[in-house]
């Protein structure tokens, strides 16, 4: 069973973005480049936030932008963007890390959510995620050890 949900090219560190739209677009474009989603999915990610607000903040400083499977998901997976400086959706609603999610339906991505939950639920792994300087640190957080 292939449970390696994050690939080397799925991580981008030290990213500068002038606003949240740019940051989300960078995060979405990684999903496009790694073959997870169609370009339309990236627009859907941004539209969802514009419509519903910055509800995608799942932990302090961490947001999980995504759209619906029918918005153009090809293959399940995630992308990670760690920003150089925090960017805000609105005052007091800042994020340092984006976890772009591509899910094929409402059930099959549960193992991905479990992995993300594992990382953000502990203060030390959450800090390692926010302050990562090497792609390997991120890959180690999200992929099971035996697959390295």
């Amino acid at each position: 069973m292939n449970r390696r949900l994050l690939e080397e090219k799925g991580v981008l560190l030290d990213v500068t973005a002038k606003d949240w739209q740019v940051a989300i677009r960078i995060c979405g474009e990684i999903l496009v480049k790694t073959g997870k989603v169609e370009v339309t999915y990236v627009d859907a990610m941004i539209n969802n936030i514009q419509e519903l607000g910055p509800y995608i903040l799942i932990a302090p400083g961490v947001a999980m932008p995504h759209a619906r499977p029918e918005d153009g998901v090809i293959q399940e997976g995630i992308s990670i963007v760690v920003l150089k400086e925090e960017v805000a959706f609105a005052p007091g609603r800042e994020f340092k890390v984006l976890i772009g999610l591509a899910a094929l339906n409402s059930e099959s991505h549960i193992y991905i959510l479990q992995k993300i939950a594992e990382v953000i639920s502990e203060a030390d792994t959450l800090e390692r995620l926010k302050n990562a300087t090497e792609n390997d640190e991120i890959l180690q957080l999200f992929n099971d050890k035996e697959e390295h």
């Binding site: 509800y55 995608i56 549960i110 993300i116």
Partner: peptide
């Protein structure tokens, strides 16, 4: 509850 009902709400459900 979340925006689409299968991302962060699913994660929240697992924690609850």
């Amino acid at each position: 509850v979340c925006g689409m009902g299968f991302g962060s709400s699913m994660m929240l459900k697992m924690t609850i």
